[in-house]
Design a binder for these strands. Structure first.
Length: 420
DNA sequence: TCTGGGGTCCTAGGACCC
DNA sequence: TCTGGGGTCCTAGGACCC
């Protein structure tokens, strides 16, 4: 059996944790740049605030209902996520962290215990020790565990656990779940399924397999097997190294000047290089893109990208910034209101398998040593203490984050103080 | 004024090889 | 009049996830 642990309204719950006056009140968290709603407390959901809705369109609804609004604080959410995962590991050794707020638990090793009681114990421990509410679904496959979790959230609110072990329990949830709410079925497939009179998970299970294969490819067929209780989605104990890393942000304001955009890009390139080193890989292809705001119909639109090959695979910040800026020189055009710039590093190779170049004249050892010191200093004294000149200080591009909460758990100056 | 960011997997079709 | 067959690799685009 597999369990899926999911933190309820995770970002909203994190904001509440250090601000108990928000309990039972509507809370929403916005995306980067305070753009869209990406997390809602139950109260906010009940008001009809939709996931992904642009914040400026929701403004009236938010003020009318006195909704507490927060900018995303990923430092806080990341730290609380780690605590939740560590706590789960104390109960079940084999877990797969699927996202910041979800983990699959391999219960096959827990043969001699009551799985339902185990789930309840995990849930109570996390709620009392960390303060983040969670829900647990248990079933024979990952897809069914996802479904059980959703079922528990809707139909077993007070218990917070649903175990689909017997066929009857599985059927109950298959009948209950609409196809669009099944993990792996997005809006496109949902539409097509509904057109063909397939409405629930139970309907899908009865559907013609050839039709599924034709219309939803092997992914659909795999999903069907998962619903039948045959595991088709592999277990990933260690997250595989990423195949590409992308850092891109919308600017806090539209930018036209190349100098401002260069500065933003240099910072994103720096982030990419740091992530490369963190996972011990090097890149051979640096891809840069730039775009205007497609929502502004009054503006001329421009979107372009370019790839810069590296002669020798690298994770050196200076080289990656240089390549990115070279790319920008090629694609930048004067006279547009730019919204976003980004850099991707692709074709990654493990750092110990880098193919040297015959005509390479760069002192690679020196560069590697420098990067080690660079990372050490920035880890110890805070991100961005040592930086390249190209990263600048003007920060015209910086994110809008007007409603940012303190980093309660990671910054000593922002730790809550209790006076008694 | 204001519309996120970072990924994965799959398929079709073209280029190329012998 | 007739115009092979079998394969690999790459890329773009679609669909999905949180």
């Amino acid at each position: 059996m597999i369990a899926l642990v999911d933190c309820n309204n995770f970002y909203a719950s994190c904001e509440r944790l250090f601000n108990p006056s928000l309990d039972n009140k509507p809370v929403v968290v916005l995306s980067n740049n305070d753009g869209c709603v990406i997390a809602r407390s139950n109260e906010a959901k009940a008001m009809g605030i939709k996931m992904g809705a642009p914040a400026f369109m929701m403004e009236e609804l938010l003020t009318q209902n006195k909704v507490s609004v927060f900018s995303s604080n990923y430092t806080l959410y990341g730290d609380l996520s780690n605590r939740v995962m560590q706590t789960i590991r104390q109960f079940v050794p084999t877990i797969e962290i699927y996202s910041i707020d979800e983990a699959f638990l391999d219960l096959s090793e827990m043969k001699y215990c009551d799985l339902f009681q185990l789930a309840q114990a995990i849930r109570e421990t996390i709620i009392s020790c960390i303060g983040i509410p969670i829900t647990i679904g248990i079933a024979p496959t990952k897809t069914l565990a996802k479904m059980a979790n959703r079922f528990a959230k809707k139909e077993r609110k007070n218990i917070g656990v649903y175990m689909a072990q017997t066929q009857w329990q599985v059927d109950q949830m298959l009948n209950y779940t609409s196809v669009g709410d099944i993990w792996g079925i997005g809006s496109q497939h949902q539409q097509r399924l509904l057109q063909n009179n397939i409405h629930t998970g139970a309907d899908l299970l009865k559907a013609n397999e050839e039709w599924i294969r034709k219309n939803m490819t092997v992914t659909g067929q795999r999903l069907l097997n998962e619903l039948k209780g045959i595991s088709c989605i592999e277990w990933e104990n260690m997250p595989p190294p990423k195949k590409g890393i992308c850092t891109a942000r919308s600017f806090g304001q539209l930018l036209s000047e190349k100098a401002d955009i260069r500065e933003a890009l240099a910072n994103y390139a720096n982030t990419c290089a740091a992530k490369l080193r963190a996972q011990k890989t090097c890149t051979t292809l640096v891809h840069v893109f730039i775009q205007t705001n497609t929502h502004r119909t009054q503006d001329n639109q421009y979107f372009r990208s370019v790839s810069i090959p590296m002669e020798v695979a690298t994770s050196n910040t200076a080289e990656i910034i240089a390549a990115a800026l070279k790319g920008l020189d090629i694609i930048y055009r004067k006279g547009y209101n730019f919204k976003k710039v980004g850099v991707m590093v692709l074709d990654l190779v493990p750092q110990d398998k880098v193919q040297m170049g015959i005509f390479d004249t760069v002192d690679r050892k020196r560069g590697t040593d420098l990067m080690q010191v660079f990372d050490k200093v920035n880890t110890r004294f805070g991100k961005g203490l040592v930086r390249y000149a190209a990263q600048g200080y003007n920060k015209k591009w910086k994110l809008r984050q007007q409603k940012l909460s303190p980093c309660y758990t990671t910054n000593i100056n922002e730790v809550p103080v209790i006076k008694c």
